[in-house]
Design a binder for these strands. Structure first.
Lengths: 209, 190
DNA sequence: GCTTTAAAAAGTAAGAT
DNA sequence: ATCTTACTTTAAAAAGC
C-alpha cells in the first residue's frame, strides 16, 4: 500500500519536474525571442495538451517545447522563422521540425489554422529592413500576382517574400541588397536570386537599371 | 468514377525481407562478396551490392536479408538466388526455399494536372503541407496503407504500398478526395 | 528511438570554381 | 554567379544498442 503510494508520488514528482523544466525552457525561448505573453501562454497550453496526449514519448522535452513555440507563433500569426527558434534551442532545426509536424498532426493543427499570410512576413522582414509602407504594398502586390499565376506552390514562403521585398525595393528606389533580404528571411542569397529571376521573368517586371 | 486514364505510375524501388533459413558466418561471407562492407560496430549486417540485378543486400547472421533498390519482384528473386549460389560455395546448406516478403514499394508518378497546394492543403482533410520544410503535400492513405507526396507539378511519389495494385488503389483514393473537395477541375482559376 | 540500404519528387543549401 | 553534390520528405525490414 505504502509502496504504491510512494511510486505514485515519484511519478507525479517526475511529471512535475519535467513540466517545470519545460516551462522554464519555454520562458527562456519566449524572452529571447521577445514573444508576446499570449504566444507564450498558448505554447504552454499546447505543451500541456501534448503531454496529456502522451505525444512527448520518444521526443525530447526541448524539441517539443520549441515545436510548441513555433506552432503558437503560427496559430497566433506572430511571424517567426523556424531558424530563429532553432538558433536558441539546443535541438537542431530538423528535429524541431519533426516534433512540430508530429504535434500538429495530433493536436489537429490543420494547415488552415497554421497558415500565416505572406503579408505578415512582409511586415516582419520590412520592419527589420526599415522599409516603407509603399515598398510593403508593392511587395504584397507582387506576391498576390505571383500566387494568381501559380508561381508560389511548393516554394519557401520566406524565399518568396524576400525576393518580393528585394524587387519592391528596387522599384520604389529603396534598395536593399540580396544579402540583406536573405539574412532577415533566413534563406540563402541563391534562393533570393532564383525567386527574383522567376518573378521578374514571369510577371514581366521592369527593373530600373 | 475517378478518371485515372491520365495517371501514370512507375516503380522506383522495392524493399523485401528474406529468410534463407540458415545461420551464416558473416566473417566467411564477407570474403566472397566483392563490393561489400561489414562493420559490426555500426551495423550488424553485411552491406553488399550486386550490379546485375542492380540491388543492395543487407545480410545478417540469422540468415535473414533485406534486399533494396530492385525495380521488379523478379530482380529480387534473381538476387536472392545469386546470393544462395555464392553461399553454397562457402559451404552453406539450404534445406528449403527462401521466403521472400515484399515490404515496401516506392513509385513515382504523374496525375497529369497542376495543383495549387495551398488550396489542396486548405480543403483536403488529413494532409500536411509545410513548404518551408518540404515542397510537397503529404497525404496518408489508411487502406491500403500508403503515403503519397503530391507536388504542384502534379507529379507524385507513392510509398509504403506492398503491391502495384495497392499503390494504384491509394492513388485512386487520393484522386477521389481531391475531386470531392473540388480540387480537380481547377487549372485556370488559381 | 537510432544505426544501414534504395529511389523518386522539387526545393533549398553548401562548397568549389 | 553558376555548377555540382547533397540534404529535406515518404515507407519498410533486418539485429542490436
Amino acid at each position: 500500500r505504502l509502496r504504491k503510494w510512494q511510486s505514485r508520488l515519484r511519478v507525479s514528482d517526475a511529471a512535475e519536474r519535467n513540466l517545470a523544466f519545460a516551462l522554464s525552457e519555454l520562458d527562456r525561448i519566449a524572452s529571447q525571442l521577445k514573444l508576446p505573453r499570449h504566444v507564450e501562454e498558448e505554447a504552454a497550453r499546447l505543451y500541456r495538451e501534448a503531454v496529456r496526449k502522451g505525444l512527448i514519448r520518444g521526443r525530447s522535452i526541448e524539441s517539443v517545447i520549441a515545436a510548441c513555440v513555433y506552432a503558437s507563433c503560427r496559430l497566433l500569426k506572430v511571424p517567426r522563422t523556424l531558424d530563429e527558434i532553432a538558433d536558441i534551442s539546443r535541438v537542431d532545426k530538423k528535429e524541431i521540425g519533426r516534433s512540430f509536424r508530429f504535434i500538429a498532426r495530433n493536436l489537429n493543427l490543420t494547415p488552415k489554422k497554421l497558415f500565416v499570410k505572406p503579408t505578415d512576413y512582409v511586415n516582419k522582414f520590412a520592419d527589420e529592413l526599415g522599409m516603407s509602407e509603399r515598398v510593403r504594398r508593392r511587395a504584397i502586390a507582387i506576391l498576390e500576382e505571383a500566387y494568381d499565376r501559380g508561381l508560389t506552390s511548393g516554394k519557401s514562403p520566406a524565399g518568396l517574400v524576400a525576393a518580393a521585398l528585394y524587387i519592391a525595393g528596387l522599384l520604389e528606389d529603396e534598395k536593399r541588397t540580396q544579402r540583406e533580404v536573405a539574412e532577415v528571411a533566413r534563406v540563402t542569397e541563391v534562393t533570393v536570386r532564383n525567386r527574383y529571376k522567376e518573378l521578374v521573368d514571369k510577371l514581366n517586371l521592369k527593373i530600373p537599371v | 468514377m475517378v478518371d485515372m486514364s491520365n495517371v501514370k505510375l512507375r516503380i522506383e524501388n522495392i524493399v523485401a525481407s528474406v529468410d534463407l533459413f540458415t545461420q551464416l558466418n558473416l566473417e566467411k561471407v564477407i570474403e566472397i562478396c566483392p563490393n561489400s562492407k561489414y562493420n559490426p560496430e555500426e551495423f550488424p549486417g553485411i552491406i553488399c551490392r550486386f550490379e546485375e540485378p542492380k540491388v543492395a543486400l543487407l545480410i545478417f547472421s540469422s540468415g535473414k536479408l533485406v534486399v533494396t533498390g530492385a525495380k521488379s519482384v523478379e530482380d529480387i528473386e534473381r538476387a536472392v538466388n545469386k546470393l544462395i549460389q555464392m553461399l553454397k560455395k562457402i559451404g552453406a546448406k539450404f534445406g528449403r526455399a527462401p521466403q521472400i516478403d515484399i515490404q515496401n514499394m516506392v513509385f513515382s508518378g504523374d496525375i497529369g494536372m497542376e495543383f495549387n497546394l495551398d488550396a489542396v492543403a486548405l480543403s483536403l482533410p488529413n494532409c500536411e503541407y509545410e513548404p518551408e520544410q518540404f515542397p510537397g503535400v503529404i497525404y496518408r492513405v489508411k487502406e491500403p496503407r500508403a503515403v503519397i507526396l503530391l507536388f504542384s507539378s502534379g507529379k507524385i511519389v507513392c510509398s509504403g504500398a506492398k503491391s502495384e495494385h495497392d499503390a494504384w488503389e491509394a492513388v485512386r483514393k487520393l484522386l477521389r478526395e481531391l475531386e470531392k473537395y473540388g480540387l480537380i477541375e481547377e487549372e485556370e482559376e488559381w
